[in-house]
């Protein structure tokens, strides 16, 4: 898996100090990986996973993404409105591009996010702006 590029990337919306103060706030995270910017990583409501939300909102072609993941040897559960990819760590990908990594370890999630956003369906979302259309 490629590491995130270290230059030419903007910082997350919230300052690092604020991120440290609240467990659910966004960790410092560079934006602009591929064409699909993510706001950052933050702990999910129950604190056991990390989520990344695309900013601005977009729509992902899950059928295409599933095919790409399976071609890369990743088993995928397709629940139509979301995919669950058996990567390490496991990740859930919604139609709106929202990702949930089943780990609370930022580095592991970051590294997987970098790989995922290098895949074409996430690097070039079907609808880069506005609400995700319903299938």
């Amino acid at each position: 898996m490629d590491a995130l590029p270290g230059s030419g990337l903007r910082r997350s919306r919230r300052p690092v100090g604020e991120a440290a103060a609240s467990p659910r706030s966004y960790a410092s995270f560079p934006r602009g990986v591929g064409a699909m910017p993510y706001r950052g990583l933050r702990l999910c409501r129950q604190g056991g996973g990390l989520e990344a939300v695309p900013d601005p909102p977009c729509s992902v072609d899950l059928g295409r993404l599933r095919a790409v993941l399976e071609a890369a040897g990743v088993p995928v559960v397709d629940a139509k409105v979301l995919l669950i990819a058996a990567t390490d760590p496991e990740v859930t990908i919604s139609r709106a591009g929202r990702l949930l990594f089943k780990t609370a370890e930022t580095e592991r999630a970051r590294s997987l996010l970098a790989w995922l956003t290098s895949l074409q369906p996430l690097a070039e979302p079907a609808s880069p702006r506005g609400r995700a259309p319903r299938p």
Binding site: Q46, G47, G48, A79, L100
Partner: peptide
């Protein structure tokens, strides 16, 4: 109250 992953369904 141990950390866990929210139900994705």
């Amino acid at each position: 109250t141990r950390p866990g992953v929210c139900c994705q369904a």
